Amino acid sequence: MQGVVKVNSALNMRSGPGSNYGVIGTLRNNDKVEIIKEVDGAYEIRFNGKVGYASKSYITIVN
């Protein structure tokens, strides 16, 4: 499943599905991501070869 990031500035990509996990990357508006699955209000995603988590509130599914 594919998604597009929709933010005003940037969205943190984290090592786990919550803000208490470390930041492993930054997503920008209109970045395209692969959605692997939904976990606790976040999506597990793949972006630029990395797998991490981002809030589903800022990712629009575009299948």
Rank of each mutant, 00 (worst) to 15 (best):
S15A: 12
V4L: 10
G3I: 03
N48P: 00
G41N: 11
Y21D: 14
V7A: 12
S57P: 07
G52M: 03
I59C: 02
E34W: 14
E44N: 07
K32C: 14
G22P: 15
S57F: 14
S15C: 10
R28C: 14
V5D: 01
V4H: 05
V4S: 04
I24Q: 03
N8A: 13
M1Y: 11
N63V: 13
V39Q: 06
T26E: 09
G18D: 10
V7N: 07
L27C: 03
G22I: 14
Y43C: 02
Y43P: 00
T60W: 14
N30E: 08
N12I: 15
G25R: 05
N8Y: 10
K37R: 15
I36E: 02
K32Y: 12
V39P: 01
N48Q: 12
D31K: 02
Y43S: 00
K37H: 08
Y58P: 01
S15Q: 07
Y53D: 01
K37V: 05
V33Q: 00
M1I: 13
S57G: 11
G49P: 00
G16T: 06
Y58G: 12
L11G: 04
Q2P: 09
F47H: 09
V51L: 11
V4R: 08
R14V: 07
Y58V: 06
Y58E: 09
Q2H: 12
N63D: 13
I36K: 02
G3H: 02
K56S: 09
G41D: 12
S57Y: 14
F47Y: 09
V39A: 06
N20S: 12
K56G: 04
A10Q: 13
A10L: 14
N20T: 09
R28I: 09
A54G: 03
A54K: 01
N63W: 10
Y21A: 14
S15V: 07
E38M: 07
I36H: 03
K50P: 00
N12D: 14
S15F: 05
I35A: 01
S9I: 12
V23E: 04
V4N: 03
I35T: 01
G25Y: 08
N48R: 11
I36F: 07
R14L: 11
M13W: 06
A42L: 15
I24W: 02
Y58R: 05
E34L: 12
N29A: 08
V51W: 06
E34I: 12
G22A: 15
V23Q: 04
R46K: 11
I45V: 09
E38H: 03
F47R: 03
K50Y: 07
S19E: 15
N63Q: 12
V62P: 07
K56F: 03
N29M: 08
G16C: 07
I36G: 02
R28V: 10
S9T: 13
V51E: 06
G16A: 07
T26Q: 12
S57H: 13
E34M: 11
I36M: 09
K32M: 14
E34Y: 12
A54Y: 02
S55C: 14
V33C: 05
E38C: 10
L27Q: 00
N29R: 08
Y21T: 13
K37C: 11
E38G: 04
V23D: 03
M1H: 10
F47V: 08
G3N: 01
Y21E: 10
Y43E: 00
T26L: 13
V4F: 08
A42V: 14
I24K: 02
V33W: 02
